[in-house]
């Protein structure tokens, strides 16, 4: 299969639009005949990423590369950055504001879920500069 590249822009602070990229990617992967277990992993990991971009970073960009055996998602933003990545990666830790919690988010499961549902996960962040997350999902894993 020839590589397919997709780009999505995620707006900041608009939780009604967060989810558009993952919904679009999910339907494309289904049409391509990607196994449903892999589609589910990609959908969950990316939706959590979209929500994080909307809540914490004032929006950001998502680049997706679909290959023959795997898919890579790169999420980048110019938000405040993460001071302590290992703390941010622990389940239950959250800096989400109250209005976000009232929507059912802010449980401190975003980054842990992104890692859990990726086969390869990498995060780089610099305070005041932004954050880049790379997630890879293998179709047969």
């Amino acid at each position: 299969m020839e590589e397919i590249k997709l780009h999505y822009d995620v707006p900041g602070d608009d939780f009604t639009r967060a989810g558009e990229a993952s919904a679009d990617l999910k339907s494309r992967l289904k049409k391509l005949g990607i196994p449903s277990a892999a589609v589910r992993k990609v959908s969950i990991a990316l939706y959590e990423g979209e929500i994080n971009l909307a809540i914490h970073a004032g929006g950001g960009a998502i680049d997706v590369v679909i290959g023959g055996e795997s898919l890579t998602m790169i999420l980048s933003d110019h938000g405040p950055g993460i001071k302590d990545i290992s703390l941010a990666m622990s389940e239950g830790f959250s800096t989400a504001p109250d209005e976000v919690r009232s929507l059912g988010f802010g449980a401190g499961m975003g980054l842990p879920n992104m890692k859990k549902y990726s086969d390869d996960f990498d995060i780089e962040s610099q305070v005041g500069v932004g954050t880049n997350v790379t997630m890879k999902v293998y179709f047969d894993a």
């Binding site: 939780f15 967060a18 993952s22 919904a23 449903s36 929507l103 059912g104």
Partner: peptide, 17 residues
């Protein structure tokens, strides 16, 4: 089963199948 009736619940339900 939930009490969250907002658009994000619909997204979660769809994505988690």
């Amino acid at each position: 089963f939930t009490v969250m009736g907002n658009v994000n619940s619909v997204a979660v339900s769809t994505l988690a199948d």
